[in-house]
């Protein structure tokens, strides 16, 4: 009977609702949240210490950084079955899929390396020496540039995806965590956890264009530690997770000013939007839950209990 229930739970739902997939770093599982019901519908076992998670552009497979298994796992999102592992270099933490849907750029945190993997041939095509503790990964919308941020070297490394060589290194504040290009490819945003800032680079000149500071009443500045962030529809606002400050900042992307701070769960880390970007799901590592934010009203509307130490989040529409 138990077996039957398990089998049923793995069957694809007839009319598939959009889902948010959350990696639970200390449970070696993924919690799947149904966006309609805002409930966890499935818990799927993974390799050890799952962190970064991303879907292929056609959503046919999901890639998971199983950091302590030293591999990137490729999973069938319908069945939750691990199809195969990709060679990833040691301790993969975060990665980004190139617009060509073929090349994964992986940060190998313990090795000061960015590994480029061809997901079709399942082979490593390049390894690029970067700074210590590479973490944040981004790729420009046109696919020409990839970015690795290194936490201890405090840099964003700009990688030419043709030659797979570093073309520039730009210093940012302490412990850069996450990087994202804007949709038009004109700006690169990089968060610095210990620096407490987000730096915006002009991609053309690779020069610093603006820097955002955060200040929350009643929270010591040392605890305001920007980590993950995502851009709202049309790149009007950025939602920035502030780690142990337990808030998400809403930043106006025209003026670079913080308009609001939304209280969420403890040690907010990464996040993913619903398909229409009306809802935002944040992973809260210490409280072990996901906060659902209503983007229009900028309010937290629900907490959803997931596994231990939720880390990454990805949308499956």
């Amino acid at each position: 009977m138990l077996r039957l229930a398990l089998a049923l739970s793995l069957l694809p739902a007839a009319a598939q609702a959009a889902e948010i997939w959350v990696t639970n770093e200390k449970d070696d599982t993924i919690s799947v949240i149904d966006i309609d019901t805002l409930e966890v519908t499935r818990t799927i076992p993974t390799g050890e210490r799952p962190r970064g998670i991303t879907f292929s552009h056609d959503y046919s497979v999901v890639y998971i950084c199983a950091s302590d298994s030293d591999s990137v796992q490729v999973m069938d999102p319908e069945t939750g079955e691990i199809l195969h592992d990709l060679p990833s270099g040691e301790d993969p933490e975060q990665f980004v899929l190139h617009p060509d849907n073929k090349h994964l750029y992986i940060a190998n945190e313990d090795d000061a390396i960015t590994t480029v993997v061809d997901v079709e041939s399942r082979s490593v095509v390049a390894q690029i020496n970067v700074g210590i503790e590479p973490e944040g990964m981004a790729v420009s919308p046109d696919g020409a540039l990839a970015i690795t941020t290194s936490e201890t070297t405090n840099m964003a490394h700009w990688i030419d995806t043709e030659t797979r060589e570093i073309v520039a290194n730009t210093l940012v504040d302490s412990r850069p965590r996450h990087a994202e290009f804007t949709e038009d490819g004109a700006e690169l945003w990089v968060s610095a956890e210990i620096g407490g800032t987000v730096t915006i680079f002009d991609v053309e000149s690779k020069a610093e264009k603006a820097k955002i500071d955060f200040e929350i009443k009643g929270v010591h500045p040392d605890k305001v530690q920007p980590v993950g962030f995502e851009f709202a529809e049309g790149d009007t606002h950025a939602f920035v997770a502030l780690g142990p400050a337990n808030h998400v900042a809403v930043v106006n992307m025209e003026t670079y000013e913080v308009e609001e701070y939304i209280l969420v769960g403890r040690r907010v880390w990464h996040m993913a939007f619903s398909p229409d970007k009306s809802q935002l799901f944040t992973t809260n590592g210490v409280s072990g839950d996901v906060t659902v934010i209503d983007v229009a009203s900028r309010e937290a509307i629900k907490s959803i209990k997931v596994g231990r130490y939720p880390w990454g989040a990805a949308l499956r529409p």
Binding site: A112, N129, G131, I132, T152, T153, N154, M155, H157, I166, N169
Partner: peptide, 10 residues
């Protein structure tokens, strides 16, 4: 070693 890695980019 940490300084050397960082320095190598600069």
């Amino acid at each position: 070693a940490d300084n050397t890695t960082t320095g190598s980019f600069l």
